[in-house]
Computed example of a mutant assay.
Amino acid sequence: MDPFADVLTANAEYARTFVDDGRPGVAGVGLAVITCMDSRISPLDMLGLVKGDAKILRNAGARVTDDTLRTLVLAHYLLGVDRVLLLAHTDCGMTKNTDGDVHAKVLAQGVDSRSIDFRTIADQRATLVTDVQRIRSWPFLPPAMPVAGGIYDVRSGAIEMVVPADAAAEAPSRD
């Protein structure tokens, strides 16, 4: 049995009625959203966006990794991104474990993962502040690019802004 039969069947139905709307691959509203891979999060829906509006980057814990920064450089210079929103979320598994906990759980399944830094989160708010600053100070991105950080509540759907956009970095007008 094909382990992907369910999603490929669903895709066949999707493709049957799919109409290419001709959108380019740029971020229509100039936004990049970095969020967690948690399947309870629907970034476009929770921000009132539609397909083509934003570049969505996802990883465990919504962490700003070297690959996230690399992707933001491409998104800014090639794909129309001129502002970044970093969104952590409540009830995140990365806040409930240490790297040691994760390594032990993986080792219990027969794999030694100690060479991996899982970037678990001891203090979500402090981590969010640090990761926003990491983007703001990345030398390959414009220093005035607006970057903000918040926490999405998976139970209420609301976002609490923790790190507002830098006052010196104002979003360009979209008129």
Rank of each mutant, 00 (worst) to 15 (best):
G149M: 04
L141H: 00
R58T: 02
D99A: 05
L74Y: 13
A148F: 04
S113T: 12
L31D: 08
D131H: 02
V50H: 14
P143T: 04
R70C: 03
D91L: 15
Q124W: 08
D91Y: 14
R63C: 03
L57G: 04
A60T: 03
V84G: 08
D112F: 06
T68W: 11
V29P: 09
A165K: 03
V33I: 14
T127R: 10
R125M: 09
T68H: 00
N59C: 03
L78P: 04
I34E: 05
V132L: 04
V132T: 09
I34V: 15
V73I: 07
Y77I: 04
R83D: 02
K96A: 05
L72A: 03
D66M: 07
D53M: 08
L85F: 08
V7D: 12
Q133A: 11
D91I: 14
D112L: 11
S39V: 11
L47F: 09
I135S: 02
A169F: 02
L72M: 09
E160G: 00
K96C: 09
H89L: 12
L74T: 13
M145T: 03
T95V: 02
D123H: 13
R58Q: 11
G61V: 01
G110Q: 08
R136V: 09
R40H: 08
D38M: 09
M46Y: 12
E170R: 13
H76R: 08
A54Q: 04
Q109K: 14
V102N: 00
Q133L: 09
P139R: 07
K51W: 11
S42D: 15
G110R: 12
P172A: 13
R119C: 14
A148N: 06
L107P: 02
V73L: 01
I116L: 05
D166A: 11
G25A: 14
A171S: 15
A168S: 12
V73W: 11
L8W: 02
D38T: 09
D153R: 01
S156I: 06
I135P: 00
G93Q: 00
D38K: 07
L57F: 10
L85E: 04
V33F: 05
M37Y: 12
V129N: 05
V154Q: 00
D131Y: 03
A167K: 01
T127Y: 04
Y152I: 08
R63N: 02
T68D: 03
I135L: 07
L87Q: 09
A5Y: 11
G93D: 00
R63K: 10
A168T: 06
A15Y: 07
A27I: 00
V154H: 04
G157L: 02
L8N: 14
V106G: 03
P146F: 09
